[in-house]
Write a protein that binds this DNA or RNA. Structure first.
Length: 578
DNA sequence: GCCGTTTTCGGCCCGACTGTTTTCAGTCG
């Protein structure tokens, strides 16, 4: 059984224990165990093979045994026994906003509710309202939650809501009663998928600000509206929370609501070591603790970190992936910034499935302040995308060479997004590839190979000396298509061994390779190229999402080849061929 | 169930809002 499957089972155990009303800390131990598995960077199978699970923080003796049993046999008696006590689809009820374990248990015990369908029925026919501890409002809210669940499944791509988030941010910023405002949460941490938007506002007029916010023209419905916070659903279906604080509380609230939860837990325990309690408002004396150091003055977010003996941690890094230790040691990376980009690769034109001409794409890139643009139209196997054959490709190369004569301080690099065929061979011969400035290779068909076959296929492709970089490594389309099965660490190893660059596809539907893998790639010495996979001039602006993911993956400008200026980038592209 | 320079027992983050209650439980983040 794989690591991900086992992690899901630990989550399920936690929920079943919740339904049984078990000790909350025991429940948390299972949740923590699942998370510990999710964040492993070393090969899970290898850890199991060498009995190394016990060294992982959050996995103790009992979990080692259960995880090992699952990994080796695919079964766990303890889990089976728990599962038998509840109907199999009871897990779906946890997805309904407003429903937790206690209510689900009451609904199940007293009304036999075990699925979304019969939950809806008992809400409508008045049975829920009649239960002790429930009422008409609760029934109504559950129905609303069911509606919300059907509508959006509650998840949004970062790129799809950034326009909305920035416009709300602008409106709050220009509100006459608002002094400071920050968008926090997973949006600020640049997670590829976000569930909601969080705004933190400092003001002396909380009532007015909250009233104006819930009345904003983008708001569809109001979930909660109190003295210091409000929750609304926006017209596109995303939930949006706003917290209003005093200016002296603002830095604490921003830290707290930027998260992640795990990062915050680390910060709080550091505070406790000093005898302070940390919450979303302030440092205070921790009850029953000895005050080791006086509580310092805090005016900014950086002050909060400084007080805890830490360098400022960029929001993208706040995922409890070693950033606290690095901040303590003063070893946090200087993360790449948008302004560091000097050019980009993997862009399409109307020769294949893009919408703009070579000239239009080049001008758009120049307007963004870039010095070069790498074209990579599809190759002949991608018939659906009007892929280029050898003749059309070489014509395009000639056209690019001509165009380059007309530029001053700007250059187009001629390339291709060459299909990796099912057997790992490429769509063009080495003789053709040798005439290009660079080559991206990607998988566009035969997604359903086994993990071993897919991994071998890709490694064979990137072993070709003319292949400069690997495009969208897992083929995922966020919220639409699962990644194909591939052994990412093995590809990273192969990329390191062959000197192949791995693309960070900046298209917000892809963001592939995922941020979680970049620290490993960096450690192995694999370099990154942030590419927009642009199919129009506007698509070039997706680079900003790529920069966000690169930052989240701890990358600096030195890790990303397209921060190199014209004059140096050519050598980087030629390096592998030599 | 996990963890440990307060170390093998006894902690484990905590505040806001809602709805159902007459002082609090459940949920959420």
């Amino acid at each position: 059984m794989t690591k991900d499957e086992i992690s899901d089972i630990l989550e399920n155990i936690a929920r079943l224990l919740e339904l049984k009303g078990e000790n909350p800390f025991k429940i948390r131990a299972y949740t923590n165990g699942a998370r510990a598995l999710d964040t492993l960077t070393e090969d899970f199978d290898k850890i199991v093979a060498r009995d190394g699970l016990g060294e992982v923080e959050g996995i103790g003796k009992a979990l080692v045994e259960k995880i090992t049993t699952l990994a080796r046999t695919g079964k766990l008696e303890y889990y089976e026994e728990l599962r038998e006590q509840f109907p199999p689809d009871i897990f779906t009820l946890f997805d309904v906003p407003g429903l937790g374990a206690k209510k689900i248990k009451a609904l199940y015990d007293q009304l036999g509710v075990h699925s979304l369908t019969n939950l809806e029925r008992v809400c409508r026919d008045g049975q829920v309202a009649a239960l002790p501890g429930f009422g008409a409002k609760t029934a109504e809210n559950i129905l609303k939650g069911l509606e919300q669940l059907k509508k959006s499944a509650g998840q949004f791509r970062l790129g799809d809501i950034s326009g909305l988030a920035e416009s709300l941010l602008d409106d709050l910023r220009s509100h006459p009663r608002v002094s400071l405002v920050q968008v926090a949460g997973s949006y600020r941490r640049k997670k590829p998928i976000v569930r909601d938007l969080d705004f933190i506002v400092s003001t002396r007029h909380p009532k007015i600000v909250l009233e104006d916010f819930v009345g904003h023209h983008l708001v569809d419905s109001v979930l909660a509206h109190g003295d210091t916070k409000a929750s609304v659903i926006l017209k596109n279906g995303i939930q949006c929370d706003i917290r209003v604080v005093k200016s002296e509380e603002y830095p604490f609230a921003v830290v707290y609501f930027t998260g992640s939860k795990e990062h915050n837990v680390r910060l709080r325990s550091r505070a406790l070591e000093r005898g302070w309690s940390l919450n979303e408002y302030r440092f205070s004396l921790a009850e029953g603790r000895e005050l080791k150091e006086p509580i310092p003055e805090v005016y900014t977010e950086a002050d909060v970190y400084r007080a805890l003996g830490l360098a400022f941690v960029e929001p993208e890094l706040r995922e409890d992936r070693g950033e606290i230790a690095a901040a303590e040691a003063g070893e946090l990376p200087q993360l790449i910034e948008w302004q560091n980009l000097r050019g980009t690769f993997h862009c399409h034109t109307h020769a294949s499935d893009g919408r703009a001409s070579l000239e239009e794409m080049a001008h758009a890139a120049e307007d963004l302040g870039l010095q070069y643009l790498g074209i990579a139209d599809h190759s002949k196997s991608s018939v659906q995308a009007n892929g280029l054959d050898e003749k059309r490709l070489l014509e395009q190369v000639a056209r690019i060479r001509e165009l380059n004569q007309t530029f001053d301080g700007f250059r187009i690099f001629a390339g291709t997004e060459c299909d990796i065929r099912k057997d790992g061979s490429l769509d063009f011969s080495d003789e053709i590839l040798a005439q290009l400035d660079y080559v991206v290779v990607s998988v566009h068909a035969a997604f359903s190979l086994s993990e071993v076959e897919m991994t071998d296929r890709i490694i064979k492709a990137i072993s070709n000396p003319y292949v400069t970089m690997m495009g969208h490594l897992t083929g995922r389309l966020l919220l639409t298509r699962e990644p194909y099965k591939v052994n990412v660490p093995a590809i990273i190893e192969a990329a390191a061994a062959t000197g192949t660059i791995i693309e960070l596809n900046a298209n917000p539907r892809r963001l592939d390779m995922d941020w979680q893998w970049w620290p490993l790639a960096k450690e192995k010495g694999v370099r990154c190229s942030i590419n927009p996979d642009a199919h129009s001039t506007a698509g070039l602006q997706d680079l900003i999402f790529g920069v966000g993911s690169a930052r989240k993956g701890w990358l600096t400008r030195n890790d990303v080849i397209n921060t190199l200026p014209l004059g140096q980038i050519e050598q980087e592209l030629a390096r592998k061929r030599k």
